[in-house]
Nucleic acid binder design. Sequence first.
DNA 1: TATAAATGTATTATTAATAGTACAAGTAAG
DNA 2: CTTACTTGTACTATTAATAATACATTTATA
Lengths: 263, 263
Amino acid sequence: MATQLQRNGPGGTKSHQLFLLLKDAITSGRMAPGTKLSGELKLAEEHRVSRVTVRRALEALMEEGLIMRKPGVGTLVCERPVGATVMTASVSNLLPNIVKMGESSRVRLLEFGYGYPQDGVRERLRLEEGERTQLSVRVRLAEDKPFSYLTTHVPERIALSYNEEDLGSTPLYSLLERSGVRLDHAAQTISATLATKDVAEALDVAVGSPLISLTRVVYDVDGRGVEHLHALYRPDRYRIEIDLCRAGDADDRYWQPLAPESQ
Amino acid sequence: MATQLQRNGPGGTKSHQLFLLLKDAITSGRMAPGTKLSGELKLAEEHRVSRVTVRRALEALMEEGLIMRKPGVGTLVCERPVGATVMTASVSNLLPNIVKMGESSRVRLLEFGYGYPQDGVRERLRLEEGERTQLSVRVRLAEDKPFSYLTTHVPERIALSYNEEDLGSTPLYSLLERSGVRLDHAAQTISATLATKDVAEALDVAVGSPLISLTRVVYDVDGRGVEHLHALYRPDRYRIEIDLCRAGDADDRYWQPLAPESQ
DNA sequence: TATAAATGTATTATTAATAGTACAAGTAAG
DNA sequence: CTTACTTGTACTATTAATAATACATTTATA
């Protein structure tokens, strides 16, 4: 069984740890909707914790709408529809201005301006020391609920070829290609991180919540950086999906990502 | 709306939350090695906590070797300690038994056995109610340091075609194809989650740390589930990378994931 | 050298988390 | 109805986390 939960130090409280444990069991599907949890006393015994602590954890789960409690009955895992809309993005269209997505989503602009990017951004965009970039911070909403926090850098010389109005009506990549930029390739890195204070406010989550982190750098045919995107997604409202199919000869088989036209 | 660090309830202690935030800022590279952190007083002010709380968080960071502190000087982000190897996986070879990866990594088996899978797993594998699966929980290490926590379900009828020795020497997919299973396609979902107690212990991270979560289901040509993998990755030791190139006609341009042979 | 700023240390008071216990109230089953 | 089990509520005692303050020590710098 689970080792003992720790009380002290920066390891989180016992109730927090138990909350995470149960939440993960639910959201991962190990406890299906409708499943009845053990009673509070039994949970307390199982995790060697007092009933107060168990109740703290269960109250937090109820606030997130993951469980239902009824006196005399017990605690049940909620049905999933509470989860509302989960936006899914296939790997090949992880783009900021997808047409389909645009229809059902709004954008809130938090920051806009020009300045000197941080070292990491400048290096990945392969810019000189003195070059400036256009910075924009946006929050994307679906059904009036925020699900992504986007920080975009575009080299100033490129950004000047369009204005904000254009951005509202046309996908960025179309704008760029119309103005002569020849897009060639992009590198994406996916990771996970925690919500900081500002992001947490914008995405309406608690500080310290887990977020999907995606960084994409787009290059033109000359290898010059065109766009640097850092995106943070709420995992309960956004998923990244990748479909693969088996390809190759019998001796040399590998997985091939599905391209848009074959989907 | 949570703008302040929360003290009460199952949200972890303030020092824990601050610890996680700072740790993530360091390991993600937002704070480069050598960077000087704000002073304890300033940090306390910025996060609206007391200095004691800041010190708790900093002490935890020092225990992990992420920062250096010197009286009269300040707190510096440490240079990347040895063993900061970051394993990267291209999207098309997100496989549990890659040859290249296998060379430099070891596996620790935590659980192994047969049983009835949870509903979510069973549905995704498209199994009947009574069918059993082989369950294995593994931790993968690189340079003796854990970076992934893998939970695998394989339908019993398929799992019986190989034994554990085979698994040690040959990639699972090769084993399966040799025994007649015709792999066809796979669906992957990438998300983010927090480390629970058991996972945290296995991966040697703090409870509540962010983790990359990946679920993959592999199907054969008849659409039957062959493998269900749930993987949790330490973001400081593992990255998922996807390279795309621009393809299509002028009127219908899209992003095409790069296949292995073109890399 | 004097000053400022940083960490290290110490103290006190307040508040929150936890454990343990007890009892009330709702529900289902015999 | 009675019994058993559930959640809801209340209370006390203990311990940890936090806030606030003060002061010492180390270091860089003007």
